[in-house]
Each structure stands twice: as structure tokens, then as C-alpha cells.
């Protein structure tokens, strides 16, 4: 069963979670044996930007010790064999170019998206 996880929503409670919950879920599904592919679209394309830094938050006397590292999470998943794609038009619309991205990301354009999703048995749009 080939699963395509499409991630659209970005930075939703990532500081509280210290993760993106869908990236985390995708990684956990891979660990459980799932054949999973990740597609970043809309604002979630920004997860592939290198150099994100969410550190430095303090609440009263409590400092957040392990802020999210979404780019690193994507790299870890990619190294584990999860193919990671992003929608090129969404990347360009946010002023991003190839030089902004971590390695291991494959771009796909909107025109080819229908044929792309057609390869998968399950399409989970988060």
C-alpha cells in the first residue's frame, strides 16, 4: 500500500509540539513499515528551507530547550528512505529558490500533480 502524505498546513502548534505533527506522524508510519511519500504544498513548502531557527523562547522561568527543527526532520526522513517532494509553484510564490532548500527534495509542478498522485494507493491530505 503506497501512501502519499500531502502536508499543507504549516507551523500549526509546532512550538508547543516541538515537531510538526504530520511530519512526525509520517516518520512514525515509516518506522511502522509503511511505504510513505511526503509532498509539501502551500505554506508547508517552507519546511524545506534550510536555516530555520525557532530557538530562544522563554515563558516565565521556563526556556524551551528543544525547539522544532523541521528542516532537520525532513532530512532525517529523507535519509530513512521517505521520498520528499514539494510543489514548485508554491515554493516560487513564497520567494524561494533552489538555493534556499535543504538537499534531498524533489520539485513537482502543479500540471503534473494529477498524474503524480495517481501513482499512490492512498492519498492523505493533511
Amino acid at each position: 500500500m503506497k501512501i502519499l502524505n500531502i502536508v499543507e498546513t504549516a507551523y500549526r502548534a509546532t512550538l508547543e509540539e516541538q515537531d510538526d505533527t504530520i511530519l512526525w506522524l509520517s516518520h512514525a508510519l515509516k518506522n511502522a513499515g509503511a511505504d510513505i511519500t511526503l509532498l509539501l504544498r502551500a505554506n508547508a513548502v517552507n519546511y524545506a528551507v534550510k536555516g530555520q531557527n525557532a530557538g530562544g523562547l522563554t515563558f516565565g522561568s521556563l526556556q524551551q530547550e528543544h525547539p522544532p527543527q523541521l528542516d532537520k526532520d525532513l532530512e532525517a526522513m529523507s535519509e530513512k528512505g521517505v521520498p520528499v517532494y514539494l510543489v514548485e509553484e508554491d515554493m516560487l510564490a513564497r520567494g524561494l529558490s533552489d538555493g534556499n532548500l535543504i538537499t534531498g527534495i524533489t520539485k513537482i509542478n502543479l500540471e503534473s500533480l494529477p498524474a503524480f498522485i495517481d501513482q499512490y494507493d492512498q492519498i492523505w491530505h493533511w
Partner: peptide, 18 residues
């Protein structure tokens, strides 16, 4: 505005003959 994305995806899949 993301409804346009979804609408385009629906049309694109239909064009595949599905």
C-alpha cells in the same frame, strides 16, 4: 483561496480519464 487548487486537482484527475 485554496479551493482553486483543489478544483484544479479534481479537473486534472478527470483529464487522466478517471
Amino acid at each position: 483561496t485554496d479551493t482553486q487548487f483543489f478544483s484544479d486537482l479534481v479537473k486534472g484527475v478527470k483529464k487522466l480519464g478517471r
